[in-house]
Design a protein around this nucleic acid. Structure first.
Lengths: 153, 153
DNA sequence: CTTGACCTTCCCATGATGGGAAGCCCTATC
DNA sequence: GATAGGGCTTCCCATCATGGGAAGGTCAAG
């Protein structure tokens, strides 16, 4: 099985397979006499493992740990579960941040009539940087809200 | 006002101010005789605009458009609103993707007892790549679900 | 005049991925 | 057997927004 076939079978692009090898996430593949990489079903399975982990949002660094646990017959499932719950927590944090952005944006967009006239509360907010009253209840409204979030990245 | 003061006043780091200037997002700042950048309140306001737009998740490319509309007295608020709703749509798409990951992960984590034993449905799923039965109802369950998502990025 | 805090430019790194060039290899077809 | 086309190899570059740091100039307070 050469790299193209392994890529198709695993869902990981040939480019990424080489990359994963270069950073040591997977061991160096065997080679034919002419230098082509050769993959056994075991290695394809490992690539599928990686692909699936990526699909769940795990960074390569964490996938390294997951792979180590996968290979370790004496692992403790608690370690795996911890990685999973940490991943959940990280994703939920990002979701909360983005949801806050969405809430602010929707509030602003709702206030913008979106016609041919130039007046626009969205630009007014961005330019002025004032409180935008997501809590319409008045001046005693708490200052909490979807503002000043750390960037997503 | 030098770059450090402008950074503090706007919430944009000096490093990023220089970067924004280098990519043409903001016009080149004035200079003192000795070469220090000088910022007027107008420019600080523009930086705050950028900072706030970034906080709402807008990429620099879109901020360029927002700034252009901000400066354009003959703009149509519909254009601003379109940018905002596109941003909302993009964020919501990402939230949905992440929520699907969270759902899958939570399902797997719930099935993992997380003790000292090596048996782990999380690793079994990642390694085997099988259906993981989010719909516990049986074999007739639909195949839809939080699988094979495009990466977040 | 020295010291420390600031400024300047320039280079490098991130994380995961793709694009592309230059060159070798393999297979099928003529 | 020659040739064409597709696949493989390595190497470099780009992304996107941000930070780190080095080398060197500048400013203000003591």
């Amino acid at each position: 099985m050469n790299i193209g076939e392994a890529a198709k079978a695993s869902g990981v692009s040939a480019k990424m397979i080489r990359y994963y090898e270069s950073i040591g996430l997977i061991p160096a593949a065997g080679r034919t006499e002419s230098g082509y990489r050769v993959y056994a079903p075991t290695e394809v399975q490992m690539l599928r493992f990686i692909r699936r982990s990526r699909d769940l949002g795990f960074p390569v660094e964490k996938i390294e740990e997951l792979l180590a646990l996968w290979r370790d017959r004496t692992r403790q499932s608690a370690d795996v579960k911890r990685l999973a719950t940490e991943q959940i927590d990280g994703l939920e944090r990002k979701v909360r941040e983005m949801q806050a952005m969405i809430d602010t944006l929707r509030h602003l967009a709702d206030a913008c009539c979106g016609d041919h006239r130039p007046d626009c509360p969205i630009l007014a907010d961005l330019g002025h940087g004032v409180e935008h009253g997501l809590n319409g209840a008045g001046p005693q409204g708490s200052k909490v809200g979807p503002m000043r979030l750390s960037p997503i990245r």
